[in-house]
Amino acid sequence: MSKYLLNKFLFTVDRDPELVERYREEPRATVEWWESEYANRILGSHSGESSTWLRFDDIEREALAAHDYPKLFELGAHPFLTLTLFIAMFERDYAEPLGFQLEYAQRLSHHTLPYPDIAT
């Protein structure tokens, strides 16, 4: 398991409006594509630098493909990264203000302190 890779996915997808929409509409295909094309790119590198060892495990891949943000939280994905990305994808589906944020809080409300470790 790699909290770094989970957070890298959330961070990079959230910063590209086209990737946000792609992830919303085709989550499994987007996760597979991102993992093969971007997982091993070094953040901030403009020279094509990459590594070769980073891969999601089956649980991470499935949580991402299922948009399962409670599971991502349990796996140690940073809550600010999950919240901002999933707001971008799903807030429009709610009529009431803060509708998605309220659902997010409710679905994570069974967690008590200490929360899962988010250190990478």
Score class of each variant (00 low, 15 high):
residue 2 S to R: 03
residue 4 Y to W: 15
residue 4 Y to N: 12
residue 5 L to N: 02
residue 7 N to R: 08
residue 7 N to I: 03
residue 7 N to G: 06
residue 8 K to C: 04
residue 8 K to A: 10
residue 8 K to R: 14
residue 10 L to Q: 03
residue 11 F to W: 13
residue 14 D to M: 06
residue 15 R to W: 06
residue 15 R to F: 07
residue 16 D to I: 10
residue 17 P to L: 09
residue 18 E to W: 07
residue 21 E to G: 04
residue 22 R to S: 09
residue 22 R to M: 08
residue 23 Y to M: 03
residue 24 R to G: 01
residue 25 E to M: 03
residue 27 P to V: 04
residue 27 P to N: 04
residue 28 R to L: 13
residue 28 R to F: 05
residue 29 A to L: 13
residue 30 T to Q: 02
residue 32 E to L: 12
residue 32 E to N: 07
residue 33 W to D: 08
residue 35 E to P: 03
residue 40 N to S: 14
residue 41 R to L: 12
residue 42 I to T: 11
residue 42 I to F: 04
residue 43 L to M: 11
residue 44 G to P: 00
residue 44 G to D: 07
residue 44 G to K: 06
residue 45 S to F: 04
residue 46 H to A: 12
residue 47 S to F: 10
residue 47 S to H: 09
residue 47 S to K: 13
residue 48 G to M: 08
residue 49 E to K: 09
residue 49 E to H: 06
residue 50 S to D: 09
residue 51 S to G: 10
residue 53 W to V: 04
residue 53 W to S: 13
residue 54 L to N: 04
residue 54 L to K: 03
residue 55 R to C: 09
residue 56 F to W: 03
residue 58 D to E: 15
residue 58 D to R: 11
residue 59 I to D: 13
residue 59 I to C: 10
residue 59 I to P: 01
residue 60 E to Q: 14
residue 60 E to A: 10
residue 60 E to P: 00
residue 62 E to G: 04
residue 62 E to Q: 15
residue 64 L to T: 00
residue 64 L to I: 01
residue 65 A to G: 05
residue 66 A to N: 14
residue 67 H to Y: 05
residue 68 D to G: 05
residue 68 D to F: 03
residue 69 Y to I: 02
residue 69 Y to P: 02
residue 69 Y to S: 02
residue 70 P to K: 07
residue 70 P to T: 07
residue 71 K to Y: 05
residue 72 L to Q: 01
residue 73 F to I: 01
residue 75 L to M: 14
residue 76 G to Y: 01
residue 77 A to G: 04
residue 79 P to Y: 09
residue 81 L to C: 04
residue 83 L to R: 04
residue 83 L to D: 06
residue 84 T to I: 09
residue 86 F to I: 02
residue 86 F to S: 01
residue 87 I to L: 13
residue 88 A to E: 13
residue 88 A to F: 03
residue 88 A to I: 02
residue 89 M to T: 07
residue 89 M to L: 14
residue 90 F to R: 05
residue 90 F to K: 07
residue 91 E to I: 04
residue 91 E to Q: 15
residue 92 R to V: 09
residue 92 R to T: 12
residue 93 D to E: 15
residue 94 Y to W: 14
residue 95 A to F: 09
residue 97 P to R: 14
residue 97 P to F: 10
residue 98 L to R: 13
residue 98 L to S: 14
residue 99 G to M: 10
residue 101 Q to C: 08
residue 102 L to V: 12
residue 103 E to N: 13
residue 103 E to H: 12
residue 103 E to D: 15
residue 103 E to P: 03
residue 104 Y to F: 15
residue 105 A to K: 15
residue 105 A to F: 05
residue 105 A to P: 02
residue 106 Q to Y: 11
residue 107 R to W: 05
residue 108 L to F: 10
residue 109 S to M: 09
residue 110 H to A: 14
residue 111 H to S: 08
residue 113 L to I: 07
residue 114 P to I: 06
residue 114 P to D: 05
residue 116 P to V: 06
residue 117 D to A: 09
residue 117 D to W: 03
residue 118 I to W: 02
residue 120 T to S: 13
residue 120 T to K: 12
